[in-house]
Design a protein around this nucleic acid. Structure first.
Lengths: 144, 144
DNA sequence: TTAGTTAGTTAGAGCAAACTAACTAAATTT
DNA sequence: AAATTTAGTTAGTTTGCTCTAACTAACTAA
């Protein structure tokens, strides 16, 4: 029944949200704002971007990004590595601490996987994986 | 395989996040901050709370909540209904516009359900629903 | 070599959201 | 009736994130 699917989906997404909240708390994320957490995530994804690249990726101006990055550096989550080829620019690296904080996302996933493993038996897990795979491997609506 | 499950889970949660982002954009949420969106959601959940109830639920002070709610009223997303029994207090109601904005969450769910329906056949949908149900119906880890 | 561009910072402003302190007005308790 | 509590607002401050404008230093091209 479609309503049943919807209901379970809603619960499932809430579980994920809750797991993410929980993971954030456990990662000693206390003295980071949502914005700063977001910066860390994107720096991680972009793999050592420059200020300009980060600003472009986030759709913000360079001065704005400079200020937030300076705060992240002051707090020890990020460091700058000077470019050899261009003395004006540096690459932003996550520090060990920054990497660690950035793993809160993984923790949330681990929690969900743990839950699935606890609630389903081996055959069901395999089946669920297969179905998830089918759902997620498809092209997005936009692509079609 | 466990890694396969993790991989699909990560993709699935990203799909949900993307769907939520998308839904927010489609709901003309432009002139609302994340905070304000959050206030609307909680006002909806609490079902016409007073300022005091809202502040308690959010763990914020009453003056802070007053200010944000005033902005939401100014923008036409919320209105106050005076209490008959206590002339000091009012109940916060979502306006039609507020309700509409608040549905962005549902839109995200609908998108996911649409995707599932497109990628799976009827039998698979039923199976997926069943498994989701099993996963989500369990008590949380904390309760155990 | 000079002119123009690019990377990044600094200065100064604005806005949203949080706080404390102090208040008004209504309700409740003694 | 007086004192206390409660609901909510107002005033003023702080912090974080964003912007534009103006700048320096370094690179590039004419």
């Amino acid at each position: 029944m479609k309503n049943q699917l919807k209901e379970s989906m809603v619960k499932f997404t809430r579980l994920i949200s809750a797991a993410e909240e929980d993971a954030k708390e456990r990662c000693e994320v206390q003295d980071l704002t949502i914005t700063q957490l977001n910066y860390l995530e994107i720096i991680g994804e972009l793999d050592n971007p420059t200020i300009t690249e980060l600003a472009t990726a986030m759709g913000l101006t360079k001065p704005s990004v400079t200020i937030v990055v300076d705060r992240l550096i002051a707090k020890g989550f990020v460091c700058k590595v000077h470019s050899n080829t261009d003395k004006r620019s540096s690459f932003l690296h996550l520090t060990g601490l920054g990497e660690k904080i950035n793993q809160w996302h993984d923790h949330a996933h681990d929690y969900m996987i743990g839950r699935i493993a606890r609630q389903l038996n081996a055959t069901e897990v395999e089946l669920f994986t297969l179905l998830l795979n089918k759902i997620t491997h498809a092209k997005t609506q936009k692509d079609q």
